[in-house]
Amino acid sequence: MESLLAWGHYLAGITWIGILYYFNFIQVPFLKVVTPETKAEAFKHLVPNALWWFRWGALFTWVFGAALLMNQHRMGSAFLLQGPDAVIGMGAWLGTIMLLNVWGIIWPNQKKVLGLKEATPEEKAKAGRMALLASRTNTMLSIPMLFFMANSGHASGLF
């Protein structure tokens, strides 16, 4: 069970964070320099697909991670940052904030940007800015999040 949950957590996590880095390091700079026609095509045929894998990857990563912690009977001590479980707990907190950013800020604002939800041009511009800042925040948070996740085992010797 443990192995299956860990596998699911990594598989979904790579999907999520891989697309997060694609958005920040590749797609945003690309959309800044292309023609309005190309941008419109990307908004119709590329960005919605990327966002689908991104948000569901985020949710499944969290669910598998939470199931792993529950399976190990350390969900409470992790989130309460108690003793050695504070290491994985910090990773879990950062991951939880990132999940809430995805579903609570990035996705609702992207729906306005993509025209899936009605919005005036001013609202669209504001939504685009909010989505970018939340996405950049998640990119920033992913750096310490991965540090704590990767070093939560006994073998790391860092804690």
């Binding site: 108690q82 504070a86 950049r136 990119t139 920033m140 992913s142 750096i143 804690f159």
Partner: peptide, 30 residues
């Protein structure tokens, strides 16, 4: 000084700084 999140390099730098800060915090708890 602008928002560090406006650039990729600023975002990554902020991520490393935050890692060091949180490492110190968790180190105290463990």
């Amino acid at each position: 000084m602008g928002n560090p999140l406006d650039t990729i390099s600023g975002t990554i730098t902020a991520g490393f700084v935050l890692t060091v800060v949180l490492y110190g915090l968790v180190k105290m708890l463990v």
